[in-house]
Amino acid sequence: MLAEWISAWLPNVRLAPLLKATEDTLYMTAMAGAAVFVLGLLLGTALHLTSPGRLLANRPLYWALSTLTNVFRAIPFIILLVLLIPFTRAVVGTILGVNAALPALIFGAAPFYARLVELAFREVDRGVIEATRAMGGGIGTVVFRVLIPEAAPALVSGLTVTLIALVGYTAMAGAIGAGGLGHLAYLEGFQRSRRDVTLAATLAVLLIVFVIQFLGDRLARRLDKR
């Protein structure tokens, strides 16, 4: 039925390439998202703990981490893609295809998520951390049993925002050879003047974004016991 509908309204759209492109976009978003979650959580935790007045307060270290984060966040993604070409070639072995997009996606989004993690942890009640220390808890207890669970709704909301940004990044990466819906919209649609292909790719991106937003909001609300 979908096939009939498509051939009637979007004459140039072929289902197989559209599904493949969607799959590629989802693959890039998921792989990069997983790496960004882990790296962002690590970097965000380091930022939080070393910031002034916190458990491992360390001005020079905080300054260094903070500057690094800001630099990567400040570079426009399309420029980061180009800048990382030598690195990507060395690590992935090629600069084309879905895997070649991953380094840039990760470097682009991890610092962004790290800041959101830092922000989320800063909102955790200091009194609870104090109580944990008073009970004999160490840094590990504070991070894994207090900061992460108490900030969970904010961590999930932050991840939702980050994943949606990643979908946007994959589209840009697609335009320069990574594949996915961005590739479909730009190379197959725009450059060949097939507006219906661009439209179909756009609808697919919108659908992905809405689903991520919906699931993220639901999970965040479920975790919120305040």
Binding site: D125, G127, V128, E130, A131, V146, P149, E150, A152, L223, K225, R226
Partner: peptide
């Protein structure tokens, strides 16, 4: 503590 300092997630 004055403000109890419980974990609201538990």
């Amino acid at each position: 503590f004055q403000h109890f300092n419980l974990l609201w997630s538990r």
